[in-house]
Simulated scan of single mutants.
Amino acid sequence: MPQLPDTGYTPTPEELASIEEWFAAYDAHSAKREVERMADLAVFPLNLVSDDSAGNGASAQWDRRQFVATMTQVMGDGSDDITFESVRTPVFLSPAMAVVFTDSAMTTGGRTRRLRYADVLIRRDGRWAFQTMLQGGWGDNLR
């Protein structure tokens, strides 16, 4: 069996902390339903990868307008508080690219929903931004 070269990147503690800080800000905006501020943390066009209700894979690219419109609809009217409890596993591909796997519990209106998703983040001018969202169940919204 061929041996793969050692090409992994090991992030510094500061790089790991910067990812945690980025997600803390994103989660805070999400909890307050500040969709425009959430959009400020993205790179557009934003890639989305999911599956649909028929079990087929789906993908799309959204511009900022489409992201804001869809997330505003999905996030609801703000009458209930939203809280998140998340465990994240960042995998750095380089100092400027990371894939972050998340297991999360989102609670709103007394109902908790468990989520598993991944985001591809890129670092530009010293700041992280998400460029790709991967999560099951969104495919019907990608048409």
Rank of each mutant, 00 (worst) to 15 (best):
M1Y: 04
M1W: 06
L4K: 09
P5E: 10
T7D: 12
G8I: 12
P11L: 01
T12I: 03
P13D: 12
P13N: 08
E14D: 15
E14V: 08
E15F: 01
L16A: 07
A17E: 15
E20G: 09
E21C: 04
E21M: 11
W22N: 01
F23V: 02
A25Q: 10
Y26C: 05
A28T: 14
S30F: 13
A31T: 07
K32P: 01
E34K: 06
V35W: 08
V35D: 04
E36I: 05
E36Y: 04
F44I: 03
F44A: 07
F44Q: 07
F44C: 07
F44T: 03
L46C: 07
V49K: 04
S50L: 07
D51P: 04
D51E: 12
S53G: 12
S53H: 13
S53P: 08
N56R: 14
A58C: 08
S59H: 04
R64M: 05
F67G: 02
V68Q: 01
T70A: 14
T70C: 06
Q73N: 11
Q73E: 11
M75T: 03
M75N: 09
G78D: 05
D81Y: 01
I82W: 10
I82L: 14
T83A: 11
T83E: 14
T83S: 15
E85M: 12
R88I: 10
F92R: 01
F92D: 00
A96L: 13
M97K: 11
M97T: 15
A98H: 02
V99C: 10
F101V: 12
T102A: 12
T112K: 14
R113P: 00
L115K: 07
L115E: 06
A118E: 05
A118F: 00
D119S: 08
D125K: 06
G126N: 04
R127H: 13
W128P: 02
A129F: 12
Q131T: 14
T132R: 12
T132D: 01
M133E: 06
L134T: 03
G137L: 12
G137F: 12
W138N: 08
N141S: 13
